[in-house]
């Protein structure tokens, strides 16, 4: 996926609840690329160069680890606050 496509995808998938700002997106993409978790391919589209980002094998492993950590964190928060989801 390319940068602009990512911002639009996030917007569409979250029904506009989450807006990924351009100023935040590219620094994150470049950081993940430098860490070797993303790889880049370039193509000429509509007379201009476009960069496509793809997740690497190492990046995918990291994604699974991070999701697990997030899940554990949310579980802990739930235990701590015991929110009443319904009345």
């Amino acid at each position: 996926m390319y940068g602009y496509e990512i911002t639009q995808k996030v917007k569409a998938e979250t029904n506009g609840n989450l807006i990924l700002k351009e100023g935040a997106l590219y620094p994150v993409l470049h950081k993940l690329e430098a860490q070797g978790w993303l790889t880049v391919e370039a193509e000429r589209v509509d007379g201009r160069l476009r960069k496509y980002y793809k997740i690497t094998e190492a990046g995918d492993k990291e994604r699974v680890n991070l999701l697990q950590s997030l899940q554990e964190y949310l579980k802990t928060m739930e235990q701590l606050f015991q929110p009443k989801w319904s009345y």
Binding site: E22, G23, P27, H30, K31, A34, Q35
Partner: peptide, 22 residues
């Protein structure tokens, strides 16, 4: 305008950081 008040500056700065790391 979507890039915020600092324009491209933040993107440039972070890119430099990531590239130095590389």
């Amino acid at each position: 305008k979507k890039f915020g008040v600092f324009g491209f500056m933040d993107v440039v700065e972070k890119r430099q950081k990531a590239m130095n790391k590389r």
